[in-house]
Design a protein around this nucleic acid. Structure first.
Lengths: 249, 249
DNA sequence: TTCTAATATTTGTCTAGTTGTATAGGCCAA
DNA sequence: TTGGCCTATACAACTAGACAAATATTAGAA
């Protein structure tokens, strides 16, 4: 059915079909036909709509993905991406505070809560014995619906029996700890390094595997120096800048 | 044969998500998070943690079951059968650089010294006019004969006429500045983020292009708040972690 | 308390839809 | 001839949902 049905003036313009499709779809997004985060029609449907092969549509979508307009997820679909904005993380440890201060809407999403045995490094950080039970809080940090970081917080289960339940109700770690009797806690040490995103980290952060990741590990403790939380955070390096003020150093 | 003249990031190996999950869980077992005979989180929980469909988790668990690491019991759960026999130990970072010390490192090597016009961003950081002369100090930081960072320090040439000469004699920035009449200076702000190594950075740091880099940019100023140095440092992410003490945060 | 039944949870299996990748070939212009 | 563009096919990887089968948990009755 193909049979070069192109109009004669198209031969003169020499616009590649895939490019015109990209323009058309980009226009649709700009017009608001597809909102941020919503799914585009599948490649099969789009190829039917434009009357071309699926690969031609893919060429157009690849171009749009490279410009950061859309974001594809295998098996799921192609979604309209929110433009990634570089995000400054302030000196404060409390995630909620420094994000709301910057005017962006902070959010946390629980990925998994569990209680399991502590590994050797976790035990050392929390000053407990390896194999002792710990609560694990895997989560995702978002700013304006945009994933900023994945994190894992580990708490000693012994002194905090009801923590997981408290975390389920309140999203905030600080509030959950307060409900378990930990009034205040401070960060004792933080370590920063750069890593490459693994495949699963890349999925969560909507970046590509091998993208730069800013990894932060730290221990929070009670006022009397007892470690209460061992946290790791992986920030999307191309979205986050950690800022330290003058008095911090 | 194909169009392999693409971007170099094509060289990045794409790990299947299920394989990445299998590695992660195997790691957890090796670390002792899940002891022999204990139950793993349910497939539903794991799929939430990794942000994937349950079938993808099942693919990972199937792989691990085939290796004899776990065994599943319908209606009950997946249990740890054995610890991985041969497990690759993750490479430890070699150096812990304390950022409180203002980026001081054991040894430095001068790569280039020059005086040129300031760019717009450099001028803004140093609070001078764009095009004003600045001294540029490109260097390499080493520890234990291993390169750990490349850096670039930019100084306003106006108030520091003899700085380059002083830097050539003494390696230390502090000593050179002291020789130019700057007795003391403090860090005013530091920004940290993760990047990928460029070709030249990779060459200097003896890492591969695309390796993770921890980038630190900061401004040092005199006691009266006048900016005196605009510095950028690129740390090799797999060799260096920055440590922030409790008082730094 | 103990047993039973109902309910919930968990793994196993199936079908279907979607994107990613590889291969092969035709057409056309430089 | 080469390279860009488009078509065509096949398969892999992942998602989505549904249901079955085995087990665990809980509530209620004896």
């Amino acid at each position: 059915m193909t049979e070069t049905e192109q109009t004669p003036d198209l031969a003169r313009a020499k616009t590649a079909v895939w490019k015109s499709i990209a323009i058309s779809l980009t226009d649709d997004i700009a017009q608001g036909c597809y909102e941020q985060g919503s799914k585009l029609p599948s490649e099969a449907k789009l190829s039917a709509r434009f009357g071309v092969n699926r690969h031609t549509v893919r060429r157009a979508l690849a171009e749009m993905a490279e410009q950061g307009l859309v974001h594809a997820r295998r098996g799921s679909g192609v979604f309209v991406a929110a433009r990634p904005t570089e995000y400054p993380i302030g000196k404060r440890v409390r995630f909620h505070q420094n994000i709301s201060r910057g005017g962006q809407v902070p959010a946390k999403r629980i990925l998994m809560l569990e209680t399991r045995a502590a590994s050797a490094t976790e035990a050392e950080a929390l000053q407990i014995a390896a194999g002792d039970p710990v609560h694990v809080y895997d989560g995702l940090s978002l700013a304006d619906e945009h994933p900023i970081a994945v994190f894992q917080s580990i708490f000693p289960a012994g002194p905090l029996p009801g923590l997981l339940h408290a975390l389920e109700e309140r999203q905030s770690v600080t509030a959950a700890l307060a409900a378990c009797g930990v009034a205040d806690y401070t960060r004792q040490e933080t370590r920063l390094t750069a890593k490459l995103a693994t495949a699963t980290q890349a999925l969560h952060l909507q970046i590509s595997e091998g993208a730069p990741i800013l990894r932060s590990t730290g221990v929070n403790g009670t006022v009397d120096g007892k470690p209460i939380e061992f946290g790791k955070t992986w920030f999307a390096g191309d979205r986050v800048t950690l800022t330290l003020g003058a008095q911090d150093i």
